[in-house]
Amino acid sequence: MKNGEAAYVQFLQDVMITIHENIRELKERKGFAETDELTYIEAKLITYHEVLAMLRMSADEFGINRREIGL
């Protein structure tokens, strides 16, 4: 892997870690959230999952190993 490619992989892995951490945090918050906050949490969870789906689809289209970038 070229130096630039390694930087891209590291960048994508960092983004994936952050997204997965945010999803985990939101799922935990959901357990003790008030009713009015639940809609907000659900919307954010849906958005994060949509972003992950887009990244998976793009990775497949470009022949990028999902595991390598944290998908």
Rank of each mutant, 00 (worst) to 15 (best):
His20Glu: 06
Met16Glu: 12
Ile17Val: 11
Leu55Cys: 06
His49Asp: 14
Asn65Pro: 02
Lys27Cys: 07
Thr39Arg: 12
Ile19Asp: 01
Arg56Ala: 09
Arg56Glu: 13
Thr39His: 11
Lys27Pro: 00
Gln10Ala: 15
Glu50Thr: 12
Val9Tyr: 01
Met57Ala: 13
Lys30Ser: 11
Ala33Thr: 05
Ser58Arg: 12
Ala53Asp: 15
Tyr48Met: 13
Leu26Asn: 09
Ile41Asp: 07
Phe11Leu: 11
Leu26Glu: 06
Asn65Phe: 03
Glu68Phe: 02
His20Met: 04
Gly70Ala: 03
Ile69Asp: 02
Arg29Met: 15
Arg56Pro: 00
Asn22Ile: 05
Lys44Gly: 03
Arg66Trp: 06
Ala43Ser: 15
Ala6Trp: 04
Asn3Leu: 10
Glu37Cys: 07
Val15Tyr: 03
Leu52Arg: 09
Thr47Tyr: 14
Ala59Lys: 04
Ile19Pro: 00
Thr47Val: 08
Asn22Cys: 09
Ala53Arg: 14
Asp60Val: 06
His20Gly: 01
Arg24Asn: 13
Leu71Phe: 02
Glu28Gln: 13
Met1Cys: 07
Glu25Cys: 05
Glu50Met: 13
Gly31Glu: 14
Ala7Gly: 03
Leu45Pro: 06
Ala7Asn: 06
Phe11Asp: 07
Arg29Thr: 03
Ile41Val: 05
Glu50Lys: 15
Gly4Leu: 11
Phe62Gly: 00
Thr47Ala: 14
Ala7Trp: 02
Gln13Leu: 14
Val9His: 01
Lys2Tyr: 02
Met54Tyr: 09
Arg67Trp: 05
Glu61His: 08
Gly70Asp: 01
Phe11Glu: 10
Lys2Phe: 02
Leu52Glu: 12
Leu52Pro: 02
Glu25Gln: 13
Val51Ser: 08
Gln10Asp: 12
Glu5His: 06
Gln13Tyr: 04
Ala33Ser: 14
Tyr48Cys: 07
Phe32Thr: 15
Leu12His: 06
Asn3Ser: 10
Gly4Cys: 03
Val51Ala: 15
Ile69Cys: 00
Met54Cys: 04
Leu38Thr: 10
Ala7Arg: 09
Phe11Pro: 00
Lys2Asp: 09
Leu38Met: 11
Leu52Ser: 03
Ala33Gln: 07
Tyr48Gly: 02
Asn3Thr: 10
Ala6Val: 06
Gly31His: 09
Ile41Arg: 10
Glu42Arg: 13
Leu55Trp: 04
Val9Ile: 15
Leu55Asn: 05
Glu25Leu: 14
His20Ser: 04
Asn65Leu: 03
Arg24Gln: 11
Tyr40Asp: 14
Lys27Tyr: 09
Asp36Phe: 10
Leu26Cys: 03
Met1Arg: 08
Arg29Ala: 10
Ile46Pro: 01
Glu34Asp: 11
Glu34Tyr: 07
